[in-house]
Amino acid sequence: MRSLITRPRALAVMLAGAALTFSPLGGQATAQLPVDQLDDCFVPPASAAAKGGHGPDTRDVSATEQKAIEARTAQILKAKAARGIGVPQGALAAANVPVYFHVMRDAAGNGDVTDSQITQQMAVLNKTFAGQESSAASNTGFTFSLAGTFRYNNNNWHKDKQSSTYRKQTRKGGANALNIWLVDFSYLGIATFPWDYPRNPGIDGIRVHFDSLPGGSIANYNLGETATHEAGHWFGLYHTFQGGCTSTNDGVGDTPAQSSSTNGCPEGRDSCSLPGLDPIHNYMDYSYDSCYNQFTPGQSTRISDMWTAYRA
């Protein structure tokens, strides 16, 4: 996860008394709530804390479960290959991913972003997944196209309350569609994993703080790289510090193990006795947006495998 501050998240409660209406203009949707259900507006501090200070931005995966996921993925890929589904040996999957933005505003319009910001965010996704931010970066082969933008007025949804409910009510597309909900919460972003899609498809996607988009107000985290980080999880990547200083680590051979997440952009950081410096420039660490610049070839291979197994 990329976290802004450390405060408890509100427990999800069922939405009551909300009427969802759809505007004929621009495909926008509006959900209205009674005034007495308004929430106070939380404004992130100017000096945002390191991402991860509030817990993981994906559900915890133990070493035992991680091993089971890898075994299950291998079985699925083998079965698909036997049916002629998948990619040739040594090749990588490639696809154009439809992206749906859900802008969760409150009744006063707080949390809105401009169409230009969404366009810029799409450009960041296409640039980062194409490996265009560094000569050391890998081109994953995946591109992104804007499939729709929907705006809602709902004070609870804006604050990421009833998140399971609002995602199930608003999510678009199938397993291959990336849904991005823009909300105001104490995180920078939260994501689901691809292997969880069959169990709960209605909540699949990523939630991103609206002020982390290009032009947002969160210092050090307003270049749009939060969406790249969370989309990495959505494609099946762990944090580079998954498992700490272990040989298994994040399941990717060319991302050196690290004992903990990064804050800022500390060149030469080496938190682990295993070979290699900490991969602070990797999108799956917790570095500043300006520090990020790459996915590795190994991560591209993992993205390909996970896409083929769970999203293709």
Results as ranks from 00 to 15, higher is better:
Q242M: 15
P45S: 01
S290D: 07
S3L: 00
V61Y: 12
K168W: 04
A10W: 07
D39K: 10
G268N: 12
T246E: 07
R302P: 05
H233A: 10
A91H: 04
V103P: 05
D39L: 11
T30A: 05
D254V: 12
I118R: 15
P45C: 01
T58K: 11
F241D: 15
D60L: 14
G244R: 13
D254T: 07
R59E: 14
K67G: 11
L15I: 04
A48G: 03
H54F: 01
T301W: 02
L20N: 11
K159V: 02
A31I: 10
D112C: 03
G253N: 13
A29M: 08
L92Q: 08
Y238M: 15
R72P: 00
L274H: 05
A309H: 13
D254L: 08
S290Y: 14
Q169T: 11
T296P: 06
A81R: 11
G253C: 01
Q37F: 01
G109R: 00
A94N: 07
S186F: 04
N293A: 06
I206G: 02
D211C: 00
S163T: 10
D36G: 01
T248S: 13
T21C: 03
V61W: 10
M122N: 09
A68Y: 02
D39E: 09
M122W: 10
N126S: 08
D204V: 13
S304N: 07
R72E: 15
D40I: 10
A227V: 15
D204C: 05
V103M: 07
S3I: 00
G53L: 01
Q37M: 05
I5S: 12
Y283T: 03
A147M: 06
T119G: 12
S163L: 09
Y100F: 15
L223P: 02
A137M: 05
T296L: 06
Q169M: 11
G202R: 11
Q258W: 06
F42L: 09
I303H: 05
D289W: 01
Y187A: 07
T140M: 04
G173F: 12
Q162P: 12
L277D: 13
K80M: 02
P256F: 04
S273L: 13
A49N: 05
E133W: 13
F295R: 04
I180T: 08
N110Y: 06
R171D: 10
G253S: 15
C265A: 06
C41R: 10
T255H: 05
A79F: 03
D57V: 03
P201Y: 04
S164P: 00
S62V: 14
Y238L: 14
A18P: 00
D40S: 14
H158R: 12
Y197M: 02
N220T: 11
T170S: 13
Q75H: 05
H233Y: 14
H54D: 09
